[in-house]
Amino acid sequence: MKRTRWLVRLGALALVASLFATPAAAQSVNRAAIDELNTQLLYVALPLALFVEVTLVYAIYRFRNNDDPSPTVDDPALEITWTAATAVILVFVGVSAYFTMANPYLTPATMDDGSASAAAADAPTDDVVIEIEAYQWGWAVHYPDADVTVRDRIVIPVDRDVRFVLTSRDVIHSIYVPSLGIKQDIIPGTEGVARTRATETGEYRLYCAELCGDGHARMDGQVAVLNGSAYGAWVEEQAEG
């Protein structure tokens, strides 16, 4: 009994702590949309988890010495209510996820005409277009406006829309920047598009999230988010070099 009480107390403390915990500020509009969805689902999942755990503990305590259990009595009203409540929860989760995935920064096709090959030409004039070629095992990052190519490092300006035109030289890769909420598979023979708008300057890790060979573990890099003047100076320096 003491052990059960301690488990209940620890569970209650974990739930309370999660409710009052302040998450770190999102570093991009992509990550902000994902964090908002997670928060919505958390407020649904926490009460359900608490209800299930309380019911479980009550059943264990209430029927712990029941040597002559009897069959459960049918309760159609309870079954209908429980089924309807589950349906409402699933609809809420589905609608929330749908509107999040419809965000053009998470699903660029919702903004484009579906043709990734025309992404650079169709991009608004204020967008920064960066071409990224994935290969075993690295990243070739090309800036078409300045005719600059760098390796394993993506530099973007803060508070500006950025489009990545993605291609693969050999096998399937996947660009993944957790802090910026960017993740997009890159299929050989096709062009993909990823979009973001970073809201915080800083250095972020870049990974390949698709097993692409024995060098997959070392296929990483850096994403640097600079302010406008620093970004312009960096592009000019690379062009001159």
Rank of each mutant, 00 (worst) to 15 (best):
K2Y: 13
R5Y: 14
W6Y: 13
L7M: 10
A12R: 11
L13D: 12
A17F: 11
S18F: 06
L19P: 02
L19Q: 12
F20L: 11
T22I: 13
P23S: 05
P23A: 08
A24M: 13
A26P: 01
Q27L: 06
S28P: 05
N30H: 00
N30G: 01
R31V: 04
A32C: 00
D35L: 00
E36G: 03
L37G: 00
Q40L: 08
Q40D: 09
L42M: 09
L42W: 14
Y43L: 12
L48Q: 11
L48A: 13
L50N: 09
V57G: 00
Y58M: 05
A59R: 13
Y61A: 14
N65L: 10
N66V: 09
D68W: 07
D74L: 12
D75P: 03
D75C: 11
A77E: 14
E79N: 11
E79V: 13
I80P: 03
W82I: 14
W82M: 11
W82K: 14
T83K: 11
A87K: 10
V88D: 01
I89V: 15
V91C: 03
G94R: 12
V95R: 01
Y98V: 08
F99W: 15
F99R: 10
F99V: 09
T100I: 00
T100L: 01
P104Q: 02
P104T: 02
P108I: 03
A109Q: 14
D112N: 15
A116Y: 11
S117F: 08
A119M: 06
A119E: 06
A121P: 02
D127C: 06
V129I: 09
I130M: 04
I132C: 01
A134Q: 05
W137A: 09
W137Y: 15
W137C: 07
G138I: 07
G138H: 03
H142S: 02
Y143N: 04
D145I: 03
V148H: 02
V150G: 06
I154T: 05
I154Q: 05
I156N: 07
V158R: 12
R160L: 09
D161R: 14
D161Q: 13
V162H: 08
V165D: 01
T167H: 03
T167W: 03
R169A: 15
V171Y: 08
V171W: 07
I172N: 14
Y176W: 09
V177L: 05
P178M: 00
P178Y: 03
L180I: 02
G181K: 00
I182D: 01
K183E: 12
D185G: 13
D185R: 10
I187V: 12
V193W: 07
V193K: 00
A194D: 01
R195E: 08
T196S: 05
R197M: 13
E200K: 15
E200P: 04
Y204C: 09
Y204P: 04
Y204N: 03
Y207H: 10
Y207T: 00
E210H: 15
E210F: 13
L211K: 12
G213F: 04
D214K: 07
H216A: 05
R218M: 10
R218K: 09
M219R: 02
L226V: 05
Y231P: 02
W234F: 10
V235D: 06
E236K: 08
E237N: 09
E237K: 09
A239H: 14
G241V: 05
